[in-house]
Design a protein around this nucleic acid. Structure first.
Lengths: 147, 147
DNA sequence: CCAACTGGTTCAATCATGGAACCATGGGAG
DNA sequence: CTCCCATGGTTCCATGATTGAACCAGTTGG
């Protein structure tokens, strides 16, 4: 049977996974946030097969996360740019990056972290806060239906 | 060929995806954060095949995100509980939930949102901030190697 | 003691993924 | 203008992953 579609789920997490829950999409968005726009850039950065990359880029365009526009360098080629919706995934990637940094050992190669462009200092850890500003842990929230 | 392993990547986002980047793992963690602990609860909630669920639960245990402990109801069965590492994924799920709520249309069914347990008011939107507290957008950060 | 429930395992079929080969355009050098 | 390489794909096949169904051993409730 085909992979289950979660697009009809009431849960926004499930709907998000339905859109970017596969192996490559978030990595493409990550690279796009770093400024990549061209097919060949993604291909080289990710080491993914062209057919898969084609498929994923098309899906991201269809979902409104990327859009095709004429190349900025004046050539006849086109490039993939993040939409506002796509840039919204920034926070998701920051969350994943922070979790990975703390919880998944990085091998010999070298570690990497995110700093702000201006002062080159590490970004603060994300915090979940209540409407009144209180810090919230995993057990201090609940999910409710909106009617 | 086997799905590419990203466990050796310097990028913490890639390493995170290597651990929880598949279709079901994050949904299992989501349910675990809502208090689910038993095999049959996950099975019913997710509608996933038992063999896949078995596989995923085992993987999450091996990764240290879940751990097996004796059932709290005194029966001879065991249950899956989140570890501290697993609870750390809370922020990732909040980020995905907020993005999905704003960017992926929810169908007829009904919408859902996260509120704090105490006052039942919606949780604040996550913010990426610099060390000095400035709000940072996607273009105002960069990735650097730590030596 | 028997039936149903829990938590799996095994199986065949189908779907997705990866690598390689191929190809139509664009662009740059001469 | 022409040749040749780079870009951005498409197609094909082999392999891996996912699925639902069937089956099964140990637990529990009645």
């Amino acid at each position: 049977m085909r992979r289950k579609s979660l697009s009809g789920a009431a849960c926004p997490i499930a709907r998000t996974l339905d859109v970017i829950g596969d192996w490559w999409s978030l990595l493409i968005v990550r690279d796009a946030l770093r400024g990549m726009r061209r097919f060949s850039e993604f291909e080289k950065s990710l080491g993914v097969s062209k057919n898969i990359l084609t498929q994923r880029l098309r899906s991201l365009v269809k979902q409104g996360i990327l859009e095709l526009s004429p190349a900025s360098d004046g050539s006849a080629y086109r490039e993939y740019r993040l939409t506002t919706k796509g840039r919204g995934l920034f926070k998701v990637l920051v969350a994943m990056g922070q979790w990975g940094q703390e919880n998944v050992a990085s091998p010999a190669g070298g570690r990497v972290t995110m700093v702000d462009l201006e002062h080159h200092k590490p970004v603060r850890k994300l915090e979940v806060r209540a409407a009144d500003g209180r810090l919230l842990g995993p057990g201090e929230t609940m999910i409710v239906r909106i009617d």
